[in-house]
Design a protein around this nucleic acid. Structure first.
Lengths: 165, 165
DNA sequence: GGAGTGATACTCGGATATCTGGTGTCCGAGTTTTCGCGG
DNA sequence: CCGCGAAAACTCGGACACCAGATATCCGAGTATCACTCC
């Protein structure tokens, strides 16, 4: 079991976008350079976020990405499912039905206990992620040293495209 | 994110072994045939369970596998970690440190909130699996139709090796 | 000086390679059984 | 009839291919900007 690092990238990018003025866009190139990752590959993940309705993309010069809705309305679960897909991690293949002798009809009408348990565990996992939003990340970023926040703001400013300008 | 189907196979095999008389062994060939899966590949997973201390293997004719401890003392979590490995599914790569401008020393002393949250979600996942044991599977199997249980017992009997015999 | 127009530069989007890890298979090491032989 | 021993059969264990999905990259479509020309 392994979670794609695209989830980590997406969460960091969303936290950056949440710190921008309302409506402002930031190109993927800036996001990639800031995080020290491949721009081309990051775009692949950002595209998934656009498809999931978490981001909006603006084409052309002065374009980029911006949040599609309020940061408080974007949960970690939304991001994880946008990147990893909605399917559960555990998929029951019903091997109990493959016994070499026949089974009476309706024998396995009840759901497989193994499957039920694994899905319960995943539900607990999702429940934790559903309670955390991108807005929570913004508050935690505010606790970083003021010097770093100033440097970060200075670095981002030339790349930010304000809506009215 | 995807859980190896080896976890499903292992859980089903353990539930079968838990239904045998105490100390009896069952060869991997019978387990594979019963579940309709590749014997060679199943052995790979059973070997992992032996390495994790959940199963004991007996070599030679009249050999096979048996539980290393009581079914009630083997949790779903033990099985999942034996197959998937102990590492967390989410691995923080600390991309926040890669900003193109320097960071003051000790700037990121606090743990990354993203990492903390993802690990909390995994902890919730593990907590559910820690509460379920192989013994729980045995009780759920008892609810299957009596006809099927009789057929299953009849099919397994020639393959079971009792400890004293 | 202002409007129109073309070229330009920059953006995202999709199609295409590469690579790691799970999946599947094979052959070898070890042990118990079994059969044959001798006493 | 009983004990001994070698061969055989069956088991697990580890090493070797194969394949799907994640990773990484490149090129093309689209749009706002900018410069230039003309009125």
């Amino acid at each position: 079991m392994r979670i794609s690092e695209g989830v980590e990238w997406a969460l960091h990018c969303l936290s950056v976008l949440a710190a921008l003025p309302a409506g402002a866009t930031l190109p993927g190139k800036a996001l990639a350079e800031f995080h020290g990752v491949s721009e081309s590959y990051l775009l692949k993940h950002l595209k998934a976020l656009v498809g999931a309705g978490l981001l909006e993309s603006v084409p052309g010069p002065r374009g980029g990405y911006r949040l599609a809705r309020a940061a408080a309305a974007i949960t970690f679960l939304d991001v994880a499912q946008a990147i990893e897909g909605p399917e559960p991690a555990f998929r029951c293949t019903e091997i109990r039905r493959r016994a070499p002798f026949g089974a009476p009809p309706g024998c396995f009408r009840a759901a497989c206990t193994i499957n039920v348990t694994m899905l319960q565990a995943e539900a607990a996992w999702r429940e934790v992620l559903r309670k955390r939003t991108i807005a929570d990340l913004a508050t935690s970023i505010a606790t970083l040293p003021a010097a770093w926040l100033r440097d970060a703001t200075a670095w981002f400013t030339p790349h930010v495209r304000l809506p009215g300008a």
